[in-house]
Design a protein around this nucleic acid. Structure first.
Length: 374
RNA sequence: GGGCGGAUAGCCAAGUGGUCAACGGCGACAGACUGUAAAUCUGUUCCCUUACGGGUUCGGGGGUUCGAGUCCCUCUCCGCCCA
C-alpha cells in the first residue's frame, strides 16, 4: 500500500491511497458492508455506480458466517461479494464493546458468545490477524479494545494498555503471515483513550512506535459528548503521523466528518447513511428529515433539491414516504442509496475544496444549509 | 315467528361486580440511531392540562348494587340455527 498526500489546506489534506485492488482518493468515506453486504439491498454494482472507492467489512461477522475458509475459497471477500475493489476489514475489536455477551477479557483476547447461536467464541489479536488475512482484505485493522464512554478512567486506561499489547501481537502475527513476493494487506493501528487527553497521548505514543501502515482513532462517538469528541480529535488527529493515512473509526455525522477532515483525518466509516436509510431518515443539503413525517405525504419534490443521485433524479418524497410506510424494501434501498450518495458527494466536495484552499468556505456553506429543516 | 350468540376506543380484540380510561395487536403520530446482534428501538394515541389532576366512556334506554364494561329488563342492529 502507498499513501501520497496531494494537497493541504490548514490541517486538512487530500491524498491518494493505493491498495492492492485500487486507488482511493482521500478524504474518503467507506460504506459499511458488515457481513459482506451493504444493508438495505444495495449491490456491488450500485456501489460502483455511487463511485465508492472502498468498502468496509467485519471480521467477527464473516468469521461466524460463512467463515473465512469459504471466503478464501471464493477468492477473498472483495471478489466473493462481486465488488472487486478495495476492502477494509475491521478486526472485530469493536464487537468486544458492542456485544453484550462478553464473558471475559484476558491478556490473550476476548471470550464471548456468538450473537447467532450463543456458542462460545474467542477472539484475540492473533486470531483476528489470521482471519483477516484469510478474508483477503486490502487494509486490515489491529485488534483493539473499545470501551464505552461510560467506563471509568481506570477501565479506559486498561483498554489503552491492552490495545497497545494487542497492537504488538497484531504486528507480529501479521508480519509472520505476510509472505515474501505475495501482495499483503496493509495493517492499521488504533489509538484508544476515550475523552481523556492524557490517555490519548499515551496511546498515540505507544501505537505510533509500531510499524503500522496507517493509524486510526478509535473509541470515539461511543457515548461521550460531541464537545469531548471534538476536543479529542483536535488534540490528537494533527499529531498522528503525517505521512500515513489517518482513519477516524465509526464517525459520524456529516458535521462530525467536516470537523475531522479539518483536523487532518483521511478516512471514515459510519453506519449512519445506511442505517438511517433503512429507518427513514434522509440526509440532505438543506437539513436532514424523517421521510415518515405526515407533511411529506403530498410532497412530490425530490429528497434533496441539490442532489444528483439516481434516486433524487427520479423519485419524490411522497413516493419514498409511501414505500417506507408500506414496508416495501425498495424504500430502504432507495433511501440508503441516496444517503450513501450524500456522504460520498460530501467527501468529493471536501477534496475539491481542499485542493482549492477553500475548505473553510465549504464547511460554512454546508453547515449553514443543513441547519435548515428538510 | 322461535332458539341461540354477539355489539368494547380509527380497526381487530381482551375483559364476567371494585386494583378499568379499560391487556394485547394493527394502524396513526412523533423521537432515537455514529468501527451494524438494528428493515430496529422508544414514546404518544377518548376530551381538557406541560404536568399534577379533572371530565366523559364499553350499541340505546331503564334497573339491581355502596360500586357495573361486567348482573337483570327492554329496545335497536348483526351472525348462525329451526320454522
Amino acid at each position: 500500500m502507498k499513501f501520497k498526500i496531494l494537497s493541504g489546506d490548514g490541517n486538512a489534506r487530500t491524498g491518494l491511497l493505493t491498495t492492492n485492488r485500487g486507488k482511493i482518493k482521500t478524504p474518503a468515506f467507506m460504506p459499511i458492508a458488515t457481513s459482506g453486504a451493504i444493508k438495505g439491498g444495495v449491490s456491488s454494482e450500485d456501489m460502483r455506480g455511487l463511485k465508492s472507492e472502498i468498502i468496509l467489512a467485519n471480521t467477527y461477522h464473516l468469521h461466524l458466517r460463512p467463515g473465512e475458509k469459504i471466503i478464501k475459497k471464493g477468492g477473498g471477500i472483495s471478489s466473493f461479494m462481486g465488488w472487486d475493489g478495495p476492502v477494509l476489514t475491521d478486526s472485530g475489536g469493536f464487537q468486544v464493546f458492542s456485544l453484550s455477551s462478553i464473558r471475559k477479557i484476558t491478556e490473550e483476547g476476548v471470550h464471548f458468545q456468538s450473537h447467532l447461536d450463543g456458542s462460545k467464541i474467542f477472539l484475540g489479536p492473533e486470531e483476528s490477524m489470521k482471519i483477516q488475512h484469510e478474508l483477503g482484505a486490502d487494509i486490515i485493522m489491529a485488534f483493539d479494545e473499545c470501551p464505552p464512554s461510560t467506563a471509568g478512567k481506570d477501565k479506559i486506561a486498561l483498554a489503552v494498555q491492552r490495545t497497545s499489547a494487542w497492537a504488538k501481537k497484531s504486528i507480529q502475527t501479521h508480519t509472520a503471515l505476510c509472505k515474501k513476493g505475495k501482495e499483503s494487506p496493509a495493517l492499521f493501528g488504533i489509538v484508544q483513550g476515550g475523552a481523556h487527553l492524557d490517555l490519548r497521548e499515551e496511546s498515540l505514543a505507544e501505537i505510533v512506535k509500531l510499524p503500522f501502515d496507517g493509524f486510526a482513532l478509535g473509541g470515539l462517538a461511543v457515548g461521550e459528548s460531541e464537545k469531548e469528541m471534538y476536543e479529542t480529535i483536535r488534540a490528537i488527529a494533527p499529531k498522528m503521523p503525517e505521512e500515513k493515512p489517518r482513519y477516524l473509526m465509526g464517525v459520524g455525522t456529516p458535521e462530525n466528518i467536516l470537523e475531522a477532515v479539518e483536523n487532518g483525518i483521511d478516512m471514515f466509516d459510519c453506519v449512519l447513511p445506511t442505517r438511517n436509510g433503512r429507518h427513514g431518515k434522509a440526509f440532505s443539503s438543506i437539513g436532514d428529515f424523517n421521510i415518515f413525517a405526515e407533511k411529506y405525504a403530498t410532497d412530490f419534490s425530490p429528497l434533496d433539491p441539490n442532489c444528483e443521485c439516481p434516486v433524487c433524479k427520479k423519485y419524490s418524497r411522497a413516493y419514498l414516504r409511501h414505500l417506507h410506510k408500506s414496508g416495501e424494501m425498495l424504500g430502504m434501498r432507495l433511501l440508503t442509496i441516496h444517503n450513501l450518495h450524500f456522504y460520498l458527494d460530501l467527501m468529493r466536495k471536501m477534496r475539491e475544496a481542499i485542493e482549492k484552499g477553500e475548505f473553510q468556505k465549504l464547511k460554512k456553506r454546508v453547515m449553514k444549509g443543513r441547519t435548515r429543516k428538510g
